[in-house]
Amino acid sequence: MTTPSALPRQRRWSPPPLIRDPWRRWAVIILSIGYLMVGLSTLNINWARVQRGAIRFQRMLAEFLQPDFVSRWGDIQAGILESLTMTVVATVIGIILSVPIGFGGARNLAPLPIYLFCRGLITLSRTFQEVIIAIVFVIMFGFGPLAGVCTLSFASIGFLAKLLAEDIEEIDPAQVEAIRATGASWLKMVSYAVVPQVSPRLVGLSIYRFDINLRESAIVGVVGAGGIGATLQTAFSRYDFDVAGAILIIIIVLVMITEFISSYIRRRLQ
């Protein structure tokens, strides 16, 4: 063995660690492993049930591969149509509601009380999953697609109004000042200096939201708010996997089509 002093040019190198402080590094590693162990232990997997599930999975796969569009076609057709109409109406209402709320939620345009109110509304809509909102609307309006329309419209606010408000807050203030310098009123200032800056993105986001609404419209039916969800849940609870498979295929194809169209339109807008 040669001593290090005999080899002065030999220098050690190892890559710098992600977290420099060794105490923190080990704390993070140990905590993550500990969490994983505890988290996995709460799963309490019922292996017998999983085994039965595996058998059922084979059956399900077989039935999924030969979907049954026919025997419940009436229900499926009505459900899909309802989902689509809900999506269309809810997206339009959502846009109409989101524009004023978005403007109100922009700190550079709105006075503080209006700003806080609009931001509160946005947070409320973003925090609750669509299905939970649907529960409240079903309580109000009873079962049916109207509750679904209200749900999706309300959920659209959390998405569209938030992004619109953020867009408005990031607009180029020079243009606003230029229009204001001509002596324009607040409304004129907004329509000439703000709207042209944010409207292209708003159109793109609205189309994107249409996609999301279509996807969500398939599940609000689980709590009775209309659409294909109720039919799908019935099919699953009866283990009618061939019918469920048919519905899933229709949903996937519909979502793919709308996504294709919407990405095409959004690309053309840019």
Partner: peptide
């Protein structure tokens, strides 16, 4: 794992 031979690391330092 960045476990290069010491000769490579020496050459790199040089």
């Amino acid at each position: 794992f960045r476990r290069y031979p010491q000769s490579d690391i020496d050459a790199a330092f040089n």
